[in-house]
Nucleic acid binder design. Structure first.
Lengths: 348, 348
DNA sequence: CTGTTAGCGCTTTCAA
DNA sequence: TTGAAAGCGCTAACAG
């Protein structure tokens, strides 16, 4: 933080204002002057003091993102998308992890507001009630809030500048059901409904209803507390020991699918020859794991959230968005009853 | 951004200064006054305007982190550690992804400096030359720079407020070699030396020298451009088709190990009965993939980097750090020549 | 087309 | 133990 507008102005024999305007490409400054100013700024390595700028203009060019923990792929993906979208619009992103602590969220959000965040993006914890002191404060301050994936039940969008971006879970379920149906599967298991998570509950429901409609039998259905690989492994083992065996297993996310695949391999069975598995989310585990998983890829939530905010920036309304999805076939599913031969696993 | 010090002061019949000092717990304000001020601040929901504060005091309480892309597990892990460490010290973190664009880095770093970052943390791209206009600018401004994992060859630490945090790759190699040696492996392959990456080159070298010293044969050694699962899969296939077969495969990271495991499964072999595989990094793929991988877990670089900076904050020198590691045995290795029976894969 | 004035909310410095 | 004055670097509003 060294060269100031004043330094440039003195060096050029201009006023501070003229320099400021020139750098902002204001219409009332001559082209020649602008060129001179820009050259000098470049030469002396000027860059603006944002603290001063936002103090004066109330425009910080900063947004805040609050996630439970960056280590999760969900959070990293959202953050990445938001960062990329932000950069294109010259918006900086402050990231905070709310972690386990209860009061954490409020303090983090206050820090963001203190720095002049123009909007707050939140990926709520699954276990949270989504409604905190922090949120009250933000909304009272009139700041836009965009939720990812989960959102408070008692807030209506539009009013109060609150909105959200979710995944099209019903469509995802339909894609998966169509896929396994076409391969001749008539008896499937579902692993992964999460009782406290709207989107997973929705997926579960869509699979259940879709299967019924198509005349597919749902021989195993597990609701689980965590959607971790361990949960998937445990439930898969349970199914393998049951009497009526499915020919395909639909999972609530890639982690569960990965755990299920682990159980299948442990049992000495072949994938996908003996059993087909479908994941959800197209994460690292599906793409790069020892078993490439057929899964459903979603559009980036972070990017969609940013666009939603940008579109509302000049007073527009904040209409919630749903990001679409597509099925990615990596060969962890095969024709039903296709025998023990594993099909080759393509790398993409 | 609404309640100001002035509002509190007027409400309490005090001066702005008294309120400011009280909130900072200055020694020259009475206990009773402090209590009153704090209660009022709490009640009215005051939080400081950081822009104003840092404009005046030159202390922003903000640091910047520049990564190639948050979606990588490496970056997400570092970012998460930095965030957590920062939060404990009430330091906010601005994150930017430098992406593919060339000029990107410089602009991002300028944005960070413009916001008053007190330090810049950089995870360089593997392909970068680590030395950019951005770095010049930062160092000229006298800001501390901490590199993760990779760093410019031509900068000496201490001078110029530059330092770095790296992983103890030599120790990691030793841990892995000891582990497979104890299981009776005498013929191993190494997949994963990266020509442009100091730490991977170091790991490769340590494995090579260690193996020689212990009298282990290195029957396959692959240097690869990307350290991706695809690279691992390809090289593993090559090895499986070769004449002299190793009994264990040591990989340069978990992604490569995962790809290698994929090739092994594709070939219809058993893991770890027919072949042992060791990863490096203890990432998602090793922990939660369909095949749980024995690997080496490192301490968090982000946390270590933050501590390095904090320790140097009052003029201390910035001594580079090395984070330690430990072997995590998840059962993807077994006694050499142990026959085809897969050992159960523990979930931890 | 360019310059002047004022002030954003806070803290440093010094006086009461 | 408290307060007044000044100013951080920038830009909105208005004059020239």
């Amino acid at each position: 933080m060294r060269v100031r507008l004043r330094d440039l102005a003195e060096g050029l024999g201009l006023s501070v204002m003229a320099v400021s305007k020139a750098l902002h490409d204001a219409p009332d400054i001559g082209a020649a002057t602008k060129a001179r100013v820009r050259a000098e700024a470049e030469k002396r390595g000027y860059w603006p003091n944002q603290a001063a700028r936002s103090l004066r203009s109330k425009q910080s060019g900063l947004i805040g993102l609050l996630v439970p923990d960056l280590a999760s792929e969900e959070a990293a993906g959202i953050a990445g998308g938001l960062l990329r979208a932000g950069e294109a619009a010259r918006i900086s992103v402050m990231v905070a992890a709310s972690g386990e602590k209860k009061g954490g969220e409020a303090a983090q959000v206050k820090a963001m507001m203190g720095r002049g965040s123009e909007a707050i993006f939140i990926l709520p914890k699954i276990t949270t009630e989504h409604r905190s002191l922090a949120l009250e404060a933000v909304m009272q301050a009139g700041l836009p809030v965009i939720f990812f994936q989960r959102y408070p039940a008692d807030v209506s969008p539009g009013r109060a500048r609150v909105s959200w971006v979710v995944r099209d879970m019903a469509h995802a379920a339909q894609l998966v059901l169509d896929h396994v149906w076409k391969q001749g599967h008539r008896s499937v298991a579902y692993l992964g409904g999460h009782p406290a998570e709207r989107s997973h509950a929705e997926h579960c429901k869509a699979v259940r209803e879709g299967a019924a409609q198509m005349g597919m039998e749902l021989v195993g259905e597990a609701t689980m507390a965590g959607l971790t690989p361990e949960d998937g492994e445990r439930e898969m083992e349970r199914i393998l020991q049951g009497k009526s065996q499915p020919t395909a297993v639909i999972c609530g996310n890639d982690a569960v699918a990965s755990g299920a695949a682990r159980a299948v391999l442990q049992a000495g069975l072949h994938l996908p020859g003996d059993l087909s598995i479908v994941g959800l989310g197209d994460g690292e585990l599906a793409r790069h794991g020892p078993v490439a998983l057929t899964t459903v890829a979603f559009g980036n939530l972070g990017k969609a959230g940013f666009e939603l905010w940008m579109a509302s920036r000049d007073g527009g309304e904040m209409k919630p968005r749903t990001v679409g999805c597509e099925l990615i076939d990596r060969g962890s599913t095969a024709e039903a009853g296709g025998g023990g031969k594993p099909s080759p696993t393509p790398s993409r």
